[in-house]
Amino acid sequence: MADGSYTVLAGGTDFYPARAGGLGGRPPESKVLDITALEGLRGIAEEGDSLRIGALTTWSDLLHAPLPPYFAALKLAAREVGGVQIQNAGTLCGNLCNASPAADGVPPLLALDAEVELASQAGARRLALDDFILGNRQTAKRPDELVTALHIPKLSARARSTFLKLGARKYLVISIVMAALLIDLDDKGNVSKARVAVGSCAARALRLPAVEAALEGRPFDEDLLPRIGDEQLDPLTPIDDIRGTADYRREAAVALLRRGVEALLSQEAA
């Protein structure tokens, strides 16, 4: 494995289509290391002040797990990953290792401040997700390393999240823009924490610190909506492609973020 000649295989939902010469574009590597028999890498467990999601945990496993409300964004994203059979096979960690700019799982996991656990013969290390995904299909994983888990820090019971995806149709579609929003509230009902991430608008999904700063410390009400604007999208570098123009993506990103705040407000009211 250390010489990099093996492709690590889990759910295979990106690997097989690419192998068939389909969407992935990369030539399939000849040697495959199937890790799906490692039962210990599957499942979600509490571990001190965080939750550990094993590398073989599938999207369906996540959807069926009882998790706190701030996992709503990740569960909404899970439902967007292909159809049911793809959700039964595909894994969260595989989505990260494949590192597509349009990976549905990445914005919600960025908003959850996820850390990626890597293991090799040299030992284990953890990287913030933001430092793990470096660019379009590039990660910080060394060839001798295996991603073994994700760690999600626990938040207060008041923390909420949501996920929105814009595609050309409702189902089975690659995102034009997607957004994940997570907020936590203090005792006065003010936004104590805002974490916002947008995908499909740069080589990798990115947190938007300017949007977060515009929301934090403010009362959690409709006055937040006009505080989100085009000028806060700076880290994003959307491109023109077959799915949309860069200008359209910027406009759509602002719209999705505002709709996300509206969705969180109505969750709170419900």
Binding site: G11, G12, T13, Y16, P17, A20, D34, Q85, I86, A89
Partner: peptide, 22 residues
């Protein structure tokens, strides 16, 4: 390409796309 679902079978009771499994 794991999209169409014509190959769905059950493996250990759960539906999977049999083109997406060795």
């Amino acid at each position: 390409t794991s999209q169409c679902g014509a190959c769905v079978v059950h493996v250990n009771g759960e539906s999977v796309k049999s083109c997406t499994m060795l």
